[in-house]
Write a protein that binds this DNA or RNA. Structure first.
Length: 488
RNA sequence: GGUAUCGUGGCCGAGCGGCUAGGCACCGGUCUGCAAAACCGGCUACAGCGGUUCGAAUCCGCUCGAUACCUCCA
């Protein structure tokens, strides 16, 4: 079967055949985190979504350069009255260097991503390390007179751009509507029009993070960083640009405009956007009391969590939904995911033990084809998982002696699970650890004692052993061919 | 109000015009000293109202509802 990958392109609103600009190379840029707080679900979903894309493209044999930035400059506090830098504000409050704060949260972000088994990108550029590139890009836009300077700040002239190109083509917006829908704001009198956006902002006196530029001591505008850094590492026109749906407007819209003027072309061929996450049907927000960080999930410390959920449980849960669907988190849903994942992992352990026969009673190649078909259809991981569960049924049936599998099919089935579960979906078996062998040896001994008691019909002893093990979190499972054990 | 995405069984979630999604929960059964696991079977939905069609969860329109964005910050 041929692998023809289809990707949903936000800009055309349809699935398109994925054809890289310069095969076998693929350039992918994804908007990364702003490092001024702990990672939460809003970080996990895009990271895992594009990790899946990254992994699958690599699996298909593409040489992927995956760039994901760290935003560590120019953030204004939401409720700040004087527009001061988010990082600078926190830094002053805590008596830390701004870069110390950025470094601290960058490290914590990396730790969380490692826990979720999200592969590190090929390049992870810092916005603060690319001020020169920002300035050069802004210069180009000024030269072409699609921007203007006021009081040391530089703004992009959206109206002029819209006359030549179509501003709003990605998000389906029309400039006139934007005007009529914009509230009258105080302090925005610098801009010619409310929809113009900053390329460079002059720093207020209290700003700590600032850089010299031809226009003022200041910092780059938000949209500038992604355009400057993606062009630097992937070229002016690359394959995939990804991010959350919340970034569609104005961020990505403005990136298109900037790149069009600065580089004479749109930044990328395919736009991919993951959908948002809700918690119990509500959006996540600090004011709603349901703001849950990734560490909260891993430790179970948040009041609205009934228990801790492991990183793999979170990853599996996210992969059980298609990336373009909204996804609702609840204890019940996470519990279901946890059990499903456990069953999947135990099935894979069973797979290593089953023996082959002369013939197969199931069509393994069909299973494999289904998995590829699902991935090729815009990375449909839930369908892949459904097929893996179907395979589980076969594995267990063979293990029970109710079905058979040939040596060749057994090999390809093992291959299938290794490839899809571990390599592509990026799941890991968390119950595995290096003490397993010692544990298992101990357990085999205990179980043999128990078996002896059972042979003697001394069920009080055998039940007692089982109960004591249960207290330790070890589950004993009696089968036809003896007993097995697992950690609860 | 505008733009976008969506509204599926007890819960989570696939589905892209006709054919079983899948997981979890629940209820039977097989197996088992008991239990668990595993297996077999059951539960069988598509927000509402119209329309297109031989046929719609799937296409179109309207209504209701949800989430994000539409402003400063990123």
């Amino acid at each position: 079967m041929e692998n023809i990958l289809h990707v949903y392109n936000t800009i055309s609103k349809r699935k398109e055949i994925f054809q890289p600009l310069r095969p076998p190379f693929v350039g992918m840029y994804v908007c990364g985190p702003t490092v001024y707080g702990d990672g939460h679900l809003g970080h996990a979903r895009p990271a895992i979504t594009f990790d899946l894309v990254f992994r699958y493209l690599q699996h298909l044999g593409y040489k992927v350069r995956y760039v994901r930035n760290i935003t560590d400059v120019g953030h204004l506090e939401n409720d700040a009255d004087d527009g001061e830098d988010k990082i600078a504000k926190k830094a002053r409050l805590e008596q830390l260097e701004p870069m110390e704060v950025a470094q601290y949260f960058t490290d914590r972000y990396h730790l969380n991503m490692d826990q979720l088994n999200v592969k590190r990108p090929s390049i992870e550029p810092l916005a603060s390390g690319h001020i020169i590139e920002h300035i050069e890009m802004i210069k180009k836009i000024l030269e072409k007179e699609f921007a203007y300077v006021i009081n040391g700040s530089v703004y992009f002239d959206v109206k002029k751009y819209n006359d030549a190109y179509a501003y709003g083509k990605l998000s389906g917006r029309i400039l006139e509507d934007l005007l009529s829908n914009t509230r009258v704001l105080e302090g925005q009198d610098e801009k010619h029009n409310s929809y113009d956006f900053a390329l460079w902002k002059k720093a207020q006196p209290e700003h700590i993070m600032r850089w010299p530029s031809p226009w003022s001591d200041g910092f780059p505008g938000w949209h500038a960083e992604c355009s400057a850094m993606s062009a630097k590492y992937l070229g002016n026109h690359f394959d995939i640009h990804g991010g959350g749906m919340d970034l569609l407007f104005p961020h990505h819209e403005s990136e298109i405009a900037q790149s069009q003027i600065a580089n004479n072309c749109e930044p990328c061929k395919y736009w991919m956007h993951n959908n948002m996450i809700t918690i119990n049907g509500q959006k996540m927000g600090k004011s709603l009391g349901n703001f849950i960080t990734l560490n909260d999930f891993f430790t179970g410390k948040h009041p609205s969590l009934e228990k801790a959920y492991s990183p793999m449980c979170i990853r599996f849960f996210i992969l059980q939904a298609h990336y373009r669907s909204t996804l609702d988190f609840s204890n019940e849903a996470l519990l279901a995911a946890e059990k499903g994942l456990k069953r999947l992992m135990q099935g894979i352990e069973t797979l290593q033990k089953i023996t082959s026969s002369a013939t197969s009673s199931s069509d393994i190649s069909k299973l494999s084809a289904n998995c590829y078909e699902a991935m090729n259809d815009d990375f449909n991981s839930p369908i892949v998982i459904a097929n893996l569960f179907e395979g589980l049924r076969i594995i267990n049936a063979v293990n029970d002696g109710k079905e058979s599998i040939s040596a060749i099919d057994l090999e390809s089935l093992k291959n299938l699970y290794t490839t899809f579960v571990f390599e592509i979906l990026g799941l890991t078996n968390e119950t595995e650890n290096n003490q397993f062998e010692i544990m298992d040896g101990l357990m085999q001994m205990v179980l043999s004692f128990r078996q002896q008691a059972k042979t003697n019909k001394d069920y009080a002893t055998s039940d007692n052993i089982r109960n004591e093990l249960t207290k330790l979190g070890i589950v004993v499972k009696d089968g036809k061919d003896g007993s097995a054990w697992s950690l609860e």
